[in-house]
Design a protein around this nucleic acid. Structure first.
Lengths: 211, 211, 211, 211
DNA sequence: TGGTAAACGAGACGGTACGTCTAGTCTTTGG
DNA sequence: CCAAAGACTAGACGTACCGTCTCGTTTACCA
């Protein structure tokens, strides 16, 4: 997890550096916990993320964790969100095909090759076991990502590259669904060859129109 | 899990009904364990499946479980396989569109509305946390399912409904990927309207040819 | 603990009713703490007396407690002393035997049937575990009680009922020692029959002299 | 605590050296726990005796302790009993005065100068806070000690040194009560001068008879 | 009369120990 | 030789208090 200033999406209230008083929680402790959870996930996997371990490696009391988070997945959600702030929106190349190729390559890299992506996958995994995790994940983590996935298509509609009557959310799901299937289910590689093929198949349904 | 006779794909060695002797493992204990694991998963979710709990509710000693299985996911894999024997192959309607519509509806129902499907999802979830589970799942559970997913397409090629040069595995993945994405990631409903739309989009890439 | 005005032996400095200012501690908080400690001891036993619990049920901040007391036994000592002010001196019946019978009955009742007696016993108990408690107890609580125990004997010497060369402190210990032994160690009843027998045995060593 | 073979009063069933199986608990673990509890009490006092600490210094799992003992005082009771086996009965000098002097000196030494005596005092202390401890102590530890305290008097009656109609239990309590009072309550020294004076006062009630 | 300083309530903090739960190992008896 | 039984070490769980530490408020005093 990024060791930035931590002022991010989960709240806008000011946070102080002092350890604890009536006026707010310790930002130091909060960041140490998120950081430790991220580190443990990267080092030892999901089973290696324990409240006890986080407390120990963050130099924080267990009670402090239980005071502010309800479970280890709650911590991971917040850690993900704190990091996701830096996940940039898809670049606009002014061309649908190039936008999609870039976005899918980037998404594949995110899911399989980055720490926030590992947290993302772990949360999806745990969501299969625990409806509460599923709810948290789908409410707090997923919407932003899906918005990013739709963005290239929305721009293409504005440009006239795609017809205007499409259900863009559904189209985006159809485009990236196979990527998630590979990452989550089959575990096969998702290199550029794979993602480019997805884009080609997707675009095949929309014959190029004259400019 | 089905309480059938238990003679199935994971082994062909003869199994006796007696508790324990010099002639091999107890089939009674094996089935009781698989049954108990299935029941616990259905009743209490993945976290409610513990070796201790399985042993207790199966009336079996923990050591017996450790002797024959390496982990609780190993048990679930075997339980899934024991059940999956009855998962029928996709029906052949003699028509690609009807075959695909039926198959995707059936697959959606399997994943979201059946006990083996719940085990399947639980294993996928755990696979995100544990590479060993991922390996087991992908080696023992997944291939058969993917074969079923490819089958309608293979039949269509044979019928001439699809061109012969296609990478059918990739096409199958593109077809069902969005379904898995919905089930595993977004949690949105996967009713017939959704699966039919997937089929429509898929077929749009293959202009109907004269019969 | 008695809810009197609280102006008593542990301090003579004026105390105000206000919450806190530069000129002294809050008598309201002090009494609330002593009262709460007494109540908790009576209701839930020694283990139920916690600083946190006292603070909560006294409506006082923990810091206020730590500012003025060093431990929960320190609070109990002060609570005992605040109550003990009303423990009257042994009545003078003008006769050693009647004085002793009355005193021992009264002492037995104090130890086994009153709230201050319960505090007294709790402190003795804790004194076995913690030398600091032992020191506090023996310095602040015990001397007054022992003075009361000696008083009937001193009066008897003045009256000529007992010879003048006796070590009265030792004699008093011998008289009441068995009572404490019963209360603290064996837990047997200490009714009038028992205390009267102690008096009889004591007096047997001092043959009645002509009046 | 004595590191003997441990076959003693709390049970006569055979105990094996193996770690644990269906045929009984581990004697090794049992002795390590009792030993550790004793050591911790001697080194760090009653508050220093924690289940966690015992487990750690005994090299035993907490669960093993909770399986066989209900509390830390339960452990101390058993540790006391395991040691008390070696507490010899009062020696018979053939003479009441000498027997009593020896016994009280020995008792004073036991209470103030030995490890089992420290356990004994700790249990009495805790008995003031916890009725369950009081019950355990009075049922399992105290009777044997009281029997020893009565023994010199019983022998004296048999010898004709004391009249036969006495309530020996009551007399014994009167004799040793002041000693406990000093040890538990006042904390004053209990050297030979003190115990001898108790014996003198006791004997003063029974004029020497001609032999 | 308004500023200053002490004690107050509140409560978050880093900790320790609690008693429970499950994992995974080991050892014996009995069929 | 396997199964049942169950004791064992190990360690995470979530809770309760510990004693310490800011905060912002309250209020008597003193300038």
């Amino acid at each position: 997890m990024t060791r930035g200033n931590g002022e991010n999406g989960t709240g806008t209230e000011p946070r102080q550096q002092h350890h604890g008083n009536r006026h707010g929680r310790s930002e130091r402790a909060r960041l140490a916990v998120l950081w430790a959870a991220d580190d443990l996930l990267a080092e030892k996997g999901f089973a290696g993320v324990t409240i006890e371990g986080i407390a120990k490696s963050a130099g924080v009391a267990k009670q402090t964790i239980y005071r502010w988070w309800s479970s280890k997945t709650d911590i991971l959600v917040e850690a993900y969100l704190t990091d996701a702030a830096e996940a940039l929106a898809p670049v606009d190349h002014g061309d649908l095909e190039r936008d999609l190729r870039a976005h899918l390559r980037r998404l594949a890299e995110f899911l399989t090759g980055t720490d926030p992506g590992a947290v993302f996958r772990a949360l999806i995994g745990q969501a299969q076991h625990d409806p509460a995790v599923a709810g948290q994940f789908r409410e707090r983590c997923l919407p932003e990502q899906r918005r990013r996935d739709r963005l290239p298509l929305e721009r293409a509609v504005r440009r006239g590259e795609l017809p205007s009557g499409l259900d863009l959310a559904a189209e985006a799901d159809r485009l990236i669904g196979p990527l998630y299937y590979r990452v989550l289910v089959t575990g096969e590689s998702v290199g550029p060859a794979f993602t480019d093929a997805l884009v080609d198949a997707f675009l095949a349904r929309f014959p190029a129109r004259p400019r």
